[in-house]
Amino acid sequence: MANKLIVSLSPHAHGTDSVEKNMYGVIIALLPALIVSFIYFGLGSAIVCCTSVLACVFFEWAITKFILKRERNTVCDGSAILTGLLLGFNLPSNLPIWIIIIGALVAIGIGKMTFGGLGCNPFNPALVGRAFLLVSFPVQMTTWPVAGQQGIGGYLDAQTGATPLAIMKEAIKSGDASVLDKLPDSLSLALGNPGQLGAGSLGEVCALALIIGGIYMIVRKIITWHIPVSILLTVFVFSGLMHLANPIYASPVDVLLSGGLMLGAIFMATDYVTSPMTKKGQLIYGVAIGVLTVAIRYFGAYPEGMSFAILIMNAFTPLINNYCKPKRYGEVVK
């Protein structure tokens, strides 16, 4: 017989899902927010995003090829592009290029490849990069250009301003609720109204664009609703209680729509590798991130707590995986 028979253990059928499909799906989901950031921050946004993506892809390729010496390069699976985009989304649009490259090196080199590459990293690489930059270059990382005020050409000479989160923090510090009046109204927080909007990182100016991306991912079954919804609900409830107790804390709707909360809840916390495996675990993880975020925002030194909250819970993920088991068949009472 000329033709060989192929043998393997069952199953012999395979679904159409693939790593690439998931990665590029997330990237597609990020597109609305990316377009909005181009509109508001102009050229600065394009420079930051491109640098970050290119640097991440280059470091991933170079490390796999020259340091790990693996035959198969994983650049094409889209995970480095995704890390680059998410890192860019977390940076202000006037950040010097060299700082972005350092951030990309830390994100890919330390955050991902030291642990063995895709699937092995305990922390979200983009957040590792951002946290590193935040503590190393606090001044550059916290002077945000004001959205929509610098036209297409604005990059390094952009005007800067206070973010909504800084205003909230100031209100808490001064104990004066009237400071909160400086906040843009909720609708412009959600849509990103250029005239009124405060400053912020690239990807956090338009909550609506991020929510559209999130819904796309849930519909495409790239992520499930458990993590984003549990984070957002927890933040809403926790900050709502605080607001009721003392009006110096901003209203829960504003808290939800401001800062990196949407970006974090929809895109960063749902990262496959660093989030728990079971539904129960994901709910616990989401609730804990929500509580930590609000706690850091209200009681901590930083105005934004999302990235640290996610990093902290990343560290707890193995523990959650160990204790949260799925509901086994047969355990259900008859």
Partner: peptide
């Protein structure tokens, strides 16, 4: 033929798919 295996990305889709509730 089977497709080339890649590293596990811990997407938890196998956990959702298991009809016996295993991981």
């Amino acid at each position: 033929k089977r497709k080339e295996p890649q590293p596990c990305i811990r997407c938890a889709k196998c956990v959702s798919a298991c009809p016996m509730g295993l991981e």
